[in-house]
Computed example of a mutant assay.
Amino acid sequence: MEEPIGTACCNGNVNDGVINDKTSSSSSKFPLTFWEMAVASSVVLGFLLGLACVYLTMPESDYGFLKLPRSLEDLQILRDHLESYTSDYTIQVLMGYCMVYIFMQTFMIPGTVFMSLLAGSLFGVLRGVALVVFTATAGASSCYFLSKLIGRPLVFSLWPDKLSFFQAQVAKRRERLLNYMLFLRVTPTLPNTFINVASPIVDVPYHIFFLATFIGLIPAAYVTVRAGIALGELKSVGDLYNFQSIATLFLIGVVTVTPTLMNKSKS
């Protein structure tokens, strides 16, 4: 009998080659080798060079306000300064925004919710949602491929039990994997950061990962971007996801997995 999708059965053991590597990976003090660190450093350097090119094409000014927002106050200050540049230097602002968002997604840096709010505040709902979905999908894809290259020891070190649970669920839902991945993207069952870095480890094909990410992030992106238009009225990030918003996301998630459940019942 199939286990419920949302059950946090993270204590289960999966006896295959992927999970058997856990002991050897977690025994080392630092999970990445020298060459793996070199690959990650090269990616960081590439992003920094891109941001430097964007910076050099902007007009001379005091850019002390440019920093990753960690609070709504930081975000409002950043928005107030960027509004004056967005109309005259739209391409540079867009490129800088995309690079920062993709960089944060690639290296699992928290705070992308503030970037989504900023997109709504600067570009409106439709363009903001398109921008967030594009950058979030690109960043998740970048994280996917980087994890495929060097992420295995890091995932074993940080989330061994979650990885066991995730692999078991993926293995049982191979025939309807897209529905399951959509459910995970739409609902907060598993963190998006974990999904990005763990998917290549548990052999989720990239085309399924891409489609689930691109489609599944739209509802949450719409909620966040729309809130960004009324940025001054927000008192905390928690105001974004009230009971109604979370219930709506779960309802959409249940709809995405209904075909899987019906197929299991028939079989």
Score class of each variant (00 low, 15 high):
F166R: 03
Q167C: 01
A168Y: 08
A168H: 05
Q169F: 04
Q169C: 01
V170E: 08
V170F: 03
A171G: 06
R173V: 04
R173N: 09
R174S: 13
R174H: 11
R174V: 15
R174L: 13
R174A: 13
R174D: 10
E175K: 15
R176Q: 11
R176C: 10
R176W: 11
L177R: 01
L177H: 01
L177A: 02
L177P: 01
L178V: 12
N179E: 14
N179S: 15
N179H: 15
Y180D: 06
Y180R: 06
M181D: 07
M181H: 04
M181A: 06
M181L: 13
L182T: 02
L182F: 06
L184P: 09
L184K: 09
L184S: 10
L184E: 10
R185V: 09
R185H: 08
V186P: 07
V186W: 04
V186K: 07
V186H: 10
V186G: 01
T187H: 03
T187F: 13
P188D: 14
P188K: 13
P188C: 13
P188T: 15
T189V: 14
T189S: 09
T189M: 11
P191L: 05
N192D: 14
N192T: 15
F194L: 08
F194G: 06
F194Q: 01
I195N: 08
I195M: 12
N196Y: 14
N196W: 08
N196R: 11
V197C: 12
V197Q: 07
A198P: 00
A198N: 00
S199T: 02
P200F: 00
P200N: 00
P200C: 01
P200R: 02
I201Q: 08
I201E: 07
I201S: 08
I201V: 11
